[in-house]
Amino acid sequence: MFGIKADWSLDVFERYFTLGDYSGGEARWCPGCGDFAVLNTVHRVLRDAQLPPEKSVAVSGIGCSSRLPHYMGTYGLHGLHGRALPLANGVKAHRPDLDVWVATGDGDCFSIGAGPWIHSVRLNMDMVVLVFDNAIYGLTKKQTSPTSPTGMKTNTHPRGAPLPALNPLTITLGISNASFVAQVVDWNPPLLYQTIKAAHAHRGTSFVRILQRCPVFSNEFCKPLQEHPDKFVLLEHENGILLDEAVKRVFSDVERHDPRDWLGAMKFARDEQRIPLGLLYHDPDAVVYEDISARDLGKSDEEKIVAINKAMDAFAI
């Protein structure tokens, strides 16, 4: 076809990957859970990138959303509560060739994993970090999470969550060397796709907070947002995320914001009246830690032995 002999490109066509190649077992989240939409979007982004499934690794912590690796056809590492990011960083440390995805939740990332969250954003290793934020602990059945809005009734705070919710956007933006900070909702497929695609294309840690529906335990978190798209402000810029016209019809409050503008990003992140959607901040030039951690790899056995012998010479008697 196109005048080129078919066998020239045979290899490529033999390994054309379909959505099925990126999916694993049947996802077992509750009906109406926002996680399905994110999972399908990840499959689509990978299929469109045509990455060999064996080159991707999906890493997660503990929680509903952390089941995601089990529903992928790639390699996966379903880790421990709060520890997805150190595990993912380790995967990348000496394997920059691997495509790394992290699935974590508001409890997993912002509470028990708060330390790794801060330090991993600073390490800025090339990976997509999807935080499924449903403002509640789901798997352990309805406990207050750091992002539960004040007054939300939970099993640990039956009379309502007592404190103002933690703002993950301002915190992430405040971390030195942060390079990609975006926010999106699970119920708008084109925006979700474009945001995750842009996150995947960025080299560095792409932090994507996904406001995610949990119809079972925190319906009151997303339901009003779904019903009132005017509560959002959609960020638009040629340096930002490509916006579908259909998305702009849903979220009609659109503002220009250059994602290189950190102060502007912080202003949107702090806005308590309008919730920002899209790419808040992007620094394509931030230091990427695997450039340091993998820099000296690739020495031959002979070179290694020469170097260790030289090191031992200092202690020779």
Binding site: L87, V91, P116
Partner: peptide, 28 residues
């Protein structure tokens, strides 16, 4: 001396992250 031998020392943010990082690297 690790750079000359072809290796890397990662100083993690805490003991837990240190072993987590090592496990991730071993796994991959």
């Amino acid at each position: 001396v690790f750079d000359k031998v072809g290796g890397f020392v990662h100083q993690a943010e805490d003991e837990i992250a240190a072993i987590g990082f090592a496990i991730g690297a071993s796994y991959a």
